[in-house]
Simulated scan of single mutants.
Amino acid sequence: MAITSDNELWAAVPAGVATLLRPAIGDLADQMISEIQQRVPEYARPSDEIYIKVLRLAVDEALQRFLSRIERPHEPWDPEVFRAIGRGEAAEGRNLEPFQTAMRLGARVAWHRLTEQAERLTLDPRTLYDLGEAIFVFLDQLADAATDGFNEARANAAGEMERRRHRLLDLLLSQPPASPEAIGDLAKAAGWRPPRTVAGVALEERGGYRAPSLAPDVLVGLERRHPCLIVPDPMGPGQAQMLDTGLRGWRAAIGPAVPLFDAATSLRWAREALELVKRGVLSEGKGVLRCSDHMATLVVFKDEELVRALSEVRLAPLAHLRASQQDRLAETLLAWLRHGRGAGEVAARLHVHPQTVRYRLRQLEELYGDQLADPDIRFELEIVLRARQALSR
């Protein structure tokens, strides 16, 4: 008759077999432990008495549970001991392969010992067959319980590590900054090696959520009101490509590289740059926008009211002109300030005829007079004209 369920399997083994086997389990446990320690290097710890006691406890528990299931096949069993073994393997930093190997070796020893003693124990072939099947079904159940404990421990550890990293991100971005000691202690607990420099990255979804794919040492704060990252060693090899690739689907700006404890400052600059992208002042490219490429614009727009007031003063000579005239002369004056005072070079930059540039420059000389000879005024003119050009985009 075929066995169709777990309970039927255990019930097929005569309950009295457990009474026959029980006197021998102490000796059997010794043989199983010896075989495991000889064949599985991870369990060969002769100097670790506590670990040997744990191994013996596990083997004894497995044997006692096996006999109990034979005696009471319909009684539910609690696999907590083997879940705890799985959690212990995770805590030891191992995978489950050594444990599974140990269980298979133990089952093999038990089966060999059983077949050797079958005649003395008067076990008929049918009972011996059912016992063999029960051993390997029980082995699978132990492995499943250990796997559950292992996965639970790994998930808990990953969750705790993630919580510590979120807290570390909070500390690095706090104002006023947290103490170096507090950050150092939490970084160690989070498994994060403090770098010499970091950069803050401001994020915004473009539409259609896509989880970033980033290096493990990047601190991620997607759950924050304003999503952000802290990137260690932002100028290191491969970092730029990692961000451009991993942040596809996000609008992102990365602040300048700064010392670790200035992370909040770098992120503030990144957020300011991202706002200028949203306003159209800075052009949005395919990858991450880098503040280091737009420092002049960030400085100019740091205090727009002040720049606006300066513009009213420095662009006053153009105020009476038509808007189209203002645009042409402002464009020519900025090119002249930025690229030199030769009409030919300015014409090449603006893609117009040199004679057109000379005409415009004469107009500007008439409008500004001696002001264009003053280096301070030229500097202020370049500031306001850069701001005007950026806003015109």
Rank of each mutant, 00 (worst) to 15 (best):
Ala309Met: 10
Ala202Arg: 01
Glu223Tyr: 07
Leu168Ile: 11
Ala18Lys: 04
Ile230Ser: 01
Trp77Arg: 10
Ala273Phe: 03
Arg108Gln: 10
Leu267Phe: 02
Phe150Thr: 01
Phe136Lys: 06
Lys302Gly: 12
Ala146Lys: 01
Ala264His: 08
Glu61Asn: 09
Gly246Asn: 06
Asp244Gly: 11
Leu318Gly: 05
Arg87Trp: 03
Val198Phe: 02
Pro73Asp: 13
Leu123Arg: 04
Glu92Tyr: 15
Arg83Leu: 05
Ser392Glu: 12
Glu61Ser: 12
Leu306Gly: 08
Leu367Met: 09
Leu391Arg: 13
Met32His: 01
Glu8His: 06
Gln64Ala: 10
Pro46Leu: 09
Glu80His: 09
Leu186His: 03
Arg388Lys: 12
Leu63Met: 08
Arg362Gln: 14
Leu219Arg: 01
Trp77Val: 13
Ile135Arg: 05
Arg154Val: 05
Gln326Lys: 09
Glu380Thr: 05
Ile33Cys: 03
Cys291Ala: 15
Leu364Trp: 02
Met235Asp: 14
Arg224Asn: 09
Leu105Asn: 03
Asp374Pro: 00
Pro194Leu: 15
Asp185Tyr: 06
Gly287Phe: 02
Lys286Gly: 14
Leu372Val: 02
Thr4Glu: 13
Ala316Gln: 12
Leu96Lys: 05
Gly26Glu: 15
Leu276Tyr: 03
Arg358Cys: 06
Arg163Asn: 11
Ala323Gly: 03
Ala323Gln: 14
Gln38Gly: 14
Glu204Arg: 13
Ser311Met: 14
Ala18His: 05
Leu214Arg: 08
Ala118Met: 06
Glu42Met: 09
Ile383Gly: 03
Lys188Phe: 07
Gly236Arg: 12
Arg358Ser: 15
Met295Arg: 11
Gln241Ala: 15
Asp148Cys: 08
Arg308Ala: 15
Arg104Met: 08
Leu276Asp: 01
Asp376Asn: 06
Asp185Trp: 06
Glu181Phe: 09
Ile33Phe: 03
Ala24Gln: 10
Gly249Trp: 03
Arg248Val: 13
Trp10Arg: 03
Ala253Gln: 01
Leu142Val: 14
Pro227Asn: 10
